[in-house]
């Protein structure tokens, strides 16, 4: 009932592990795959080894999750063990990656493509670095250049930029689609925000600020996905605070063909995917809905 096709990729359910969580190595990705995810995304692969930001890098309180992990990566040249380990993975594998220049995006993509991930998730949305991520996703022209450069080396692998939730996100999305993007994912974390410890008068996150996610931002995401669905004619992927079957169905009704879960793993554990899938199935049965495709954009 939940099985669906996304750009020719067969998924047992439309629930994907979002980039950045539980994706640092092959062993943990395989564990997530075994806990019910329809597909899993590797943590963003970088152009060179990068340690990321000092701790604290992830905090949560109430319905808010904040992170400033800062794109740690061994670099594409140090991933042999992980690619080898991922060969036996049971669900489609998406590869997220970032870079520090348009040319470098092509360089990293070119190194990833021979390992045949099911999808290239282009990170132009991370707010937790000064030289990577969102700086490529806020200007439509720059974002389009990145997509063009990646498309030149991606072969048959679909290319999906993941955007920051900027005010001009629809404009950026359209520019990416014009440049050949096969799908658009929305959105990276919001803000960024800041938390100050009042006893010490110090910023809590090691980076000072951090992207905001978690159930609190879900309504913001749903609105923007709704608008994105009307703005572009490629499949849209929703990510942001989805923790239940109801949340996933809501995002799909807003226009998402697939949903990503990240912070949901904090609230409901690594098997959040199996739980959300069961809740979706139960709702679909009660409401006589036979397939995900029937639901996509059905709130419009």
């Amino acid at each position: 009932m939940l099985a669906t096709d996304f750009l020719g990729i067969h998924l047992k359910n439309p629930l994907v592990l979002a980039a950045g969580l539980l994706g640092t190595n092959a062993s943990i990705l395989k564990r997530v795959a075994a806990s019910g995810a329809g597909a899993v995304t590797m943590k963003s692969i970088g152009p060179k080894p990068r340690a990321g930001n000092p701790n604290p890098t992830i905090i949560s309180f109430g319905d808010v999750v904040m992170n400033a992990v800062g794109l740690p990566s061994p670099g594409y040249m140090n991933l042999d063990r992980e690619w080898e380990g991922l060969k036996g993975i049971k669900v489609p594998l998406f590869a997220s990656f970032y870079a520090g220049s348009v040319g470098e995006f092509a360089e990293v993509a070119e190194a990833i493509v021979p390992h045949k991930p099911a999808l290239l998730d282009v990170n132009i949305g991370c707010p937790n670095t000064k030289s990577h991520g969102a700086i490529f996703g806020k200007d439509p022209k720059v974002a389009a250049k990145v997509v063009t450069a990646v498309k030149e080396v991606s072969g048959k692998i679909p290319v999906m930029p993941k955007l920051p939730p900027s005010d001009n996100a629809l404009e950026v999305a359209k520019a990416c689609v014009d440049a050949g993007a096969d799908a658009i994912a929305g959105f990276n974390t919001w803000g960024p925000g800041m938390v100050i410890d009042i006893n010490t008068r110090k910023k809590v996150l090691g980076f000072g600020t951090g992207g905001v996610s978690g159930p609190a931002i879900r309504p913001l995401m749903v609105k923007k996905i709704y608008d994105l669905y009307e703005a572009v004619d490629v499949p849209v992927v929703a990510v942001g605070g989805i923790t239940t079957g109801r949340d996933a169905i809501e995002a799909i009704m807003a226009g998402a063909s697939m949903v990503e879960i990240g912070s949901g793993t904090i609230y409901r554990g690594m098997d959040v995917f199996a739980k959300v899938a069961a809740e979706m199935e139960s709702w679909m049965r009660e409401n006589d809905v036979k397939s995900i495709k029937e639901l996509v954009g059905s709130a419009h």
């Binding site: 950045g20 969580l21 539980l22 994706g23 640092t24 190595n25 092959a26 062993s27 943990i28 990705l29 395989k30 564990r31 997530v32 943590k43 990321g52 701790n55 890098t57 992830i58 949560s60 992990v69 740690p72 063990r81 380990g85 912070s263 793993t265 904090i266 690594m270």
Partner: peptide, 17 residues
């Protein structure tokens, strides 16, 4: 370790995760 709460995956070991 980075997050300390089991969601970043950084301290996951081979081969079990």
């Amino acid at each position: 370790m980075k997050c300390g709460i089991g969601i970043c995956g950084h301290c996951a070991i081979d081969p079990t995760g």
